[in-house]
Write a protein that binds this DNA or RNA. Structure first.
Length: 601
RNA sequence: GCGUCUGUAGCUCAGUGGAUAGAGUGUUCGACUCCGACUCGAAAGGCCGUGGGUUCGAAUCCCGCCAGACGCACCA
């Protein structure tokens, strides 16, 4: 699927351009054409006339961006062509250079040791890029490839009765970013917070509460009291394993509808939700559905029947399993020997329900990498049930968060609460604002946006599969490649535009923007749609995070080297357009990773 | 033991089979009468874990080994 989408990109552009060119037999609409600029496409079109035996799409795939600006803007490595044409790559590059006819938009082509390097006409390129961005505004980088298609994203999904700690942040922010990215690509997204509100851990909590807790203590201590009961349970259970059986028995009672068990469960759930919602509010994250595990309690029986009917269920050591030995996997357990259900039972049920309800094109699960096998197993069960949409289920794993080298474990009480981190980050930002911009309006809101931004950005900074070691110093560091740096850069661009106090006009002379900083900035701006697309394809928000740092750096270099609000009106107009385009792109990118883009900080 | 993932500058990390492997941070040295210095520039810093293989070409693909993380039936 990934390969398929990748292959489609150039085709999509090609077809779209063709469509615009031929629409109603009229000349193409300039504005529409500019929204589709694709410099590789331009080069591929030129080359395809001279290279026989390769389609435009194949040539497109060969093209790359040179590592160094001195080598041009787009390059064709001729080594692979060498075999087809039985000529040396050097020769091919030179022959092509001498034969191709360059349009105005390409200044020159140079053959250099087996590469054919194309140099764009800078002025035309900058004009096209800036016009595109300013015309499209907050749609710059968006597509409509997902039009009419649904994508379910299952993320955050904290366990009730456990505190929301730094480990939960990753699922929340990665999922939230994927939601925004797919939405930007035209998909209709359904964000589901699959709350862990069912299962044996409630049995444990009930046992602990009845033995060592009290109504008063829970009402006063809220989730912290629940957590300490949970921790105490595991401590005691080490000495007295019979407690585990008691806990399982209480869960069986829950599944059988025992009123005492259920009312305690509801109470614990309410307490937890209050806490979670407070954190989501600080983060500024919402969900379309909070259908947690308990939602599927009355829907599992038919699925178990279905597994039985399809001959997949097998008894083993008293439990009901689906044997996956044939696929080199341990069995997928469906029912425990006491007849109660498990995680996999609910996941399978939920997937079937979601397919029926949302008719998704993809259903994405954002969870820790430690659950990889679990997903592999039950995805296989769905396939064995004969559902051809099994390949639409996608597990998006992320690395483990550790605490000073040790794994965080709620059971042992070793956690850093997310709310504490967010509040500290906000506090720190607030202090900086107080010092640097004491006259700022709504300081509290800006402090929240930037403090949260710092934490979220740092979580989305590396490839999601990497393990992270939590450190207060790192998460509260606002220097270098951080959220505040990018947000600050955006605010700075806004500030210049405010000072200019004039409409940014599209009527500017792009040939004035001739410095290397200006050209480099335009090139980076150009890359944004491609980066967003890759981030979607690879389900990897860090691609956008990285890009934003590059863009902010390029802008700051430009800003440092050149004055924008100069007397020369033509130069001023052109540079303001560049600033406006940067502002738009930074804001769009920040939005896609779930950060605010305040205009003043 | 088996399986999955990770290993790149002192540290944290980027890096589509292609040209001289890049940022940030830390260290050293610089730049503010100037649009917001939470900024910018320069220097130093690399057997890309290791040994083979494939290829015109490998940090990138394949195999072995080493190190670490995470899994491997009644938790989620």
């Amino acid at each position: 699927m990934v390969f398929y989408l990748f292959f489609l990109t150039p085709l999509f552009n090609f077809v779209t351009i063709w469509y615009y060119k031929h629409k109603n037999g009229k000349k193409i609409n300039k504005k529409e054409y500019f929204t589709m600029i694709d410099i590789k496409q331009k080069v591929a079109d030129i080359l395809s006339e001279k290279i026989e035996g390769l389609s435009t799409e194949e040539i497109y795939e060969l093209l790359e961006y040179p590592p160094n600006p001195d080598m041009g803007d787009v390059a064709l490595p001729c080594f692979k062509l060498s075999r087809i044409f039985r000529k040396s790559p050097v020769q091919i590059a030179e022959d092509l250079m001498n034969n191709i006819q360059l349009p105005d938009s390409i200044e020159k082509a140079e053959a250099v040791s087996g590469y054919l390097n194309f140099f764009l006409n800078k002025s035309i390129f900058i004009r096209e890029v800036l016009e595109t961005i300013i015309n499209k505004g907050d749609k710059y980088g968006s597509r409509d490839i997902g039009k009419g298609k649904n994508i379910v994203i299952d993320y955050s999904s904290p366990n009730i009765a456990k505190p929301f700690h730094i480990g939960h942040l990753r699922s929340t922010v990665i999922g939230n970013s994927l939601y925004k990215i797919f939405e930007f690509m035209g998909y209709n997204c359904i964000g589901i917070n699959y709350l862990g509100d069912w299962g044996t851990q409630f049995g444990k909590l009930i046992v602990a509460y009845k033995k060592w807790g009290s109504k008063e203590a829970v009402e006063n201590g809220q989730i912290k009291e629940l957590m300490s009961l949970y921790v105490k349970f595991h401590k005691e259970a080490e000495e007295n394993p019979a407690l585990e059986d008691e806990a399982r028995a209480w869960f069986v009672k829950m599944e059988k509808g025992d009123e005492e068990a259920l009312s305690l469960w509801r109470w614990f759930k309410d307490i937890s939700l209050k806490e979670f919602n407070r954190v989501y509010e600080i983060l500024g994250i919402t969900f379309d559905s909070y259908a947690g595990e308990s939602f599927y309690e009355d829907k599992m029986q038919p699925v178990i029947e279905e597994l039985k009917e399809k001959g997949l269920l097998k008894e083993s050591e008293g439990a009901q399993i689906v044997d996956l030995e044939e696929y080199d996997m341990p069995p997928c357990m469906i029912l425990k020997k006491d007849g109660s259900t498990l995680y996999a039972t609910r996941d399978i049920t939920a997937a079937i329900y979601r397919k029926k309800t949302y008719d998704f094109e993809k259903c994405i699960y954002v969870t820790g990498v430690s659950q990889s096998l679990h997903f592999k197993q039950w995805f296989k069960v769905i396939e064995l049930m004969g559902y051809d949409w099994a390949d639409q289920l996608i597990h998006v794993p992320f690395g483990t968060v550790s605490l000073g080298g040790e794994k965080m474990a709620t059971r042992e009480g070793k956690v850093v609460l997310l709310e504490d981190i967010l509040n500290k980050a906000i506090e720190k930002t607030r202090a900086i604002i107080e010092e640097k911009s004491p006259h700022l309006e709504n300081k509290d809101e800006i402090a929240r946006q930037m403090g949260v931004g710092a934490v979220v950005f740092s979580d989305l900074y590396s490839n999601r599969i990497k393990d992270v070691s939590f450190s207060w110093d790192e998460i509260l560091n606002f220097d270098g490649e951080t959220g505040p740096y990018v947000q600050y850069t955006h605010a700075r661009a806004c500030s210049v535009l405010r000072k200019a106090d004039e409409e940014v006009s599209l009527d500017f002379d792009s040939s004035i923007l001739s410095s290397k900083e200006e050209y480099q900035l335009a090139k980076t701006l150009y890359l944004f749609p491609e980066k967003v697309y890759t981030a979607m394809e690879e389900l990897e928000p860090s691609i956008i995070t990285r890009y934003l740092v590059d863009l902010a750096q390029d802008f700051n270099r430009f800003y440092h080297e050149h004055s924008i609000l100069v007397e020369d009106q033509a130069l001023r107009n052109a540079r303001l357009a560049l600033v406006q385009a940067t502002k738009i792109t930074l804001a769009n990118g920040l939005r896609l990773i779930g950060l605010s883009a305040p205009e003043q900080v």
